[in-house]
């Protein structure tokens, strides 16, 4: 899977080219382009499954004084089960995070893919992101035209880095709590109290942000409503590509590399599965959001 992901991003495979060819042969048929590699899509699936598991159990612990938390805990087997699921998901997500770091490091150091650090495909924020953001606000207020975005929009980069730093903070504080006596040997006394505060507050931020802002930006805003399946299927239609990532589309076209990204139309079954999974997760997230925000405000 990993090899494939690199292949897709680096050199387009034979199948991709063949698929592109057939799409070109029928101009009436809408063309589709690769946006996410299978690896990226699987990383997202693992991440949202474990995140949902962590959020459901973690928020239950955080807001344990509420009746819904106690009923939920009782339903799945009490605190023992809650903590087990929380730690299980935490370990999986940690492994995924470490894999991601290793993968990025390997691609930068060994493969010399410096484009990961700067350039149009990079996740690293740049001046254009600031301009895009200001441009977007001007557009919101009717003072200018919609900014033309590159491969990753500024809010997508924010999502990425929020999760990135969030995982470091929440993960570290979580492991300090898990292995308190071990970390107690070299951390100052107040740190054991601090990790508890940080873990809980950062969790509230992460859950609230993902279950509201990320869902709105990704799926629920009118342009994407009711669901953007790109992260599940990995492909976007040509119209979507031009509309959402105009600058990238233009650049690839000018470089003559657009066809490298051609892909098949997603299978109906995959599309259907994406929607079922997507809606389930969005619904679960919104329920958790409502419960947590009401509990947080009451505290």
């Amino acid at each position: 899977m990993k090899d494939q992901s690199i292949r897709i991003e680096g050199n387009p495979s034979q199948t991709q080219a063949a698929a592109g060819g057939s799409a070109e042969a029928n101009p009436e048929t809408e063309r589709y382009f690769v946006r996410f590699t299978p690896m990226q899509r699987w990383m997202h699936v693992i991440m949202f499954s474990t995140f949902l598991g962590l959020a459901a159990t973690g928020l239950t612990i955080l807001f344990s004084a509420n009746a819904w938390a106690q009923h939920f805990a009782l339903a799945i087997g009490g605190f023992g089960a809650i903590l087990f699921i929380h730690k299980f998901c935490a370990v999986i997500l940690t492994l995924e995070f470490l894999y991601h770091i290793g993968n990025i490091a390997f691609r930068i150091v060994v493969k010399k893919q410096t484009g990961l650090l700067w350039g149009p495909d990079s996740m690293v924020p740049n001046l254009k992101d600031l301009k895009d953001m200001l441009g977007n606000f001007r557009w919101f207020l009717g003072l200018g035209s919609k900014p033309r975005l590159e491969r990753y929009a500024y809010w997508e980069k924010f999502d990425y880095w929020a999760v990135f730093w969030g995982m470091i903070i929440i993960g570290f504080s979580g492991y300090v709590m898990w292995f308190g006596p071990f970390f107690g040997r070299f951390l100052p006394g107040w740190a054991l109290n601090a990790v508890q505060i940080v873990h809980g507050e950062e969790a509230v931020l992460a859950a609230t942000f993902i279950f509201s802002i990320h869902f709105i930006n990704g799926h629920l805003r009118p342009d994407n409503f009711p669901m953007d399946t790109t992260i599940f299927t990995g492909v976007q239609s040509e119209e979507e590509f031009q509309h959402r990532h105009a600058e990238e589309y233009q650049r690839l076209k000018a470089e003559g590399r657009l066809e490298e990204k051609l892909a098949c139309k997603p299978e109906r079954s995959l599309l259907k599965a994406s929607k079922v999974i997507g809606f389930t997760v969005v619904a679960a997230g919104i329920v958790l959001l409502i419960l947590s925000v009401s509990a947080y405000i009451r505290e």
């Binding site: 606000f137 919101f140 931020l205 609230t208 342009d223």
Partner: peptide, 24 residues
Amino acid sequence: MVLLITCVMTFFVLHSVLWLIRSL
């Protein structure tokens, strides 16, 4: 932490609401 939550959420709620209005 509370300030961080407040700032991030305020910014993005504003962002989303304005975006929603413009899209409509």
